[in-house]
Design a protein around this nucleic acid. Structure first.
Length: 102
RNA sequence: GGAGCCGGUGAGGCGGUCGCCGGCGCCCACCAGGGCGCGGGAGGAAAGUCCGAGCUCCAGAGGGCAGGGUGCUGGAUAACGUCCAGUCGGGGUAACUCGAAGGAAAGUGCCACAGAAAGCAAACCGCCGGUCCCUGGCUUCGGCCCGACCGGUAAGGGUGAAAGGGUGCGGUAAGAGCGCACCGGGUCCCCGGUGACGGGGAUCGCAUGGUAAACCCCACCUGGUGCAAGACAAUGUGGAAGCGACCCCCCCUCGGGGGGUCCGGGGCGCCCCCUCCGCUGCUUCCCGGUAGUCGCUCGAGCCCGCCGGCAACGACGGGCCUAGAUGAAUGACCGCCGCCUCCCAAGGGCAACCAACGGAGGAACAGAACUCGGCUUACCCCCGGUCUUCGACG
RNA sequence: GGCCCCAUAGUCUAGCGGUCAGGACGUCGGCCUCUCACGCCGAAAUCCCGGGUUCAAUUCCCGGUGGGGUCA
């Protein structure tokens, strides 16, 4: 995944993605210790990202996509609402190029 | 009312919607798996990994050495560097709290700079006594001062973190435990206490500074390894190295088996005891590949009652089952109630003060990773104590 | 998750408990030179932080913080 050239950057997040190999779109999360030393803060960011991804309309995209979301240290200052908007912004930009249904 | 001390089984509650991870039951399915229902799902520190245990493997965990740890006393405990009760010594007005708190007459080392001198006594300035008159000064010509030499002195000055008990009086040429009083200290005896130690008496003018979180001595404890331990499976007919010497006995054709001595190796610091291995499959190392199942949650467990004990804790009886993930599960949103701080102030009270309604804000530190017992560190707030203290008022 | 190390000028490092914490490279200032280089002189450190032991701590002890290594 890391070798994929397709990337999308937002204020607090980095999205690395490529055409998916499975039947449905999948996602992975990277929250390093650089983001926060405390495990509880890293876990909260991961839960936010998983929750935001779960609420996307995955059927909007023509082909399945694998994406890795990397958190930047600035997410700690953001709220769940902001994080969710960034994920939705990424997904809408992706869907615009690959319109379709399930 | 303010400030504080100690303790705590507390760490918002209820309801709803969408999700996540295990368990149990039923159903569907050849399998992979899926559906429905019920029930469970982070902490007091889950953290740091600083101690102690269980458990695991190293054949055994047996002796010694090295290394490490602990260090007032008595008890608690599976154990501890923890806890409880006390002793002594600091801190605080107090409630209370803190203390690596054995030994410096077993030995060794160190004590920089400064200072005369730093551990054994020692005289730089000074003080005092004696002798001398070469030099200088004064002279009433006897001498005197300065000085030199010899001796006494630890009271004063100065140095230092520290200078051989402290203060006062007497004493003396000047001084000095030289003598006395009080304080401190050593030795011995008696009494109380299991003991640390405390109290009392006698006696010694007092000799031998500090440092052991310097080496060390004494007492006690301690084998290593850590669940990525370890077990089973899956995966390569992969590569390299090792498998010794001699003697005796038996079956006796080649050959095979057993025993002994030495040698080599393993036994996770070293040595010993003991023990295992030394050729047709094992050991060690390297390279490639795979991260599956178990270990994995019922345990020195939690709650209640009662008894023993000042207490830590223990005995008995009854009840309960309370997370098991593996790139790693608890999140998102909404409603109501409750909590804290500040503002406003109806009202209550003799007063200090308290305070309804309303408004604004806040709710910490932090996420199990084999499991327990502690310690340490982080942290808004809340509750309790016939707790302490200060202020105001009656 | 377990275990084990390290921390000293900008960087890499020395440092029996005792004055001014030593050295190399680099940086800055000055001298030398017509200028640069070389050379010479000089400057810059909370010894990671907080306690304790000691007369005295970079050093010894305890507790934190931040880095690094290793183990299926």
């Amino acid at each position: 995944m890391q070798s994929s050239r397709e990337r999308y950057l937002s204020e607090h997040l980095v999205f690395v993605y490529r055409k998916g190999s499975g039947a449905v779109s999948r996602m992975g999360v990277t929250v390093s210790k650089r983001v926060a030393k405390q495990a509880v803060r890293r876990n909260r960011v991961k839960r936010w990202l998983r929750e935001a991804f779960r609420r996307l309309d995955l059927c909007a995209c023509a082909e399945p996509v694998d994406v890795v979301i990397i958190a930047r240290p600035s997410v700690l200052r953001a709220s769940f609402r902001e994080v969710r908007q960034e994920v939705e912004g990424f997904w809408e930009g992706l869907v615009r190029t690959r319109r379709g249904g399930c």
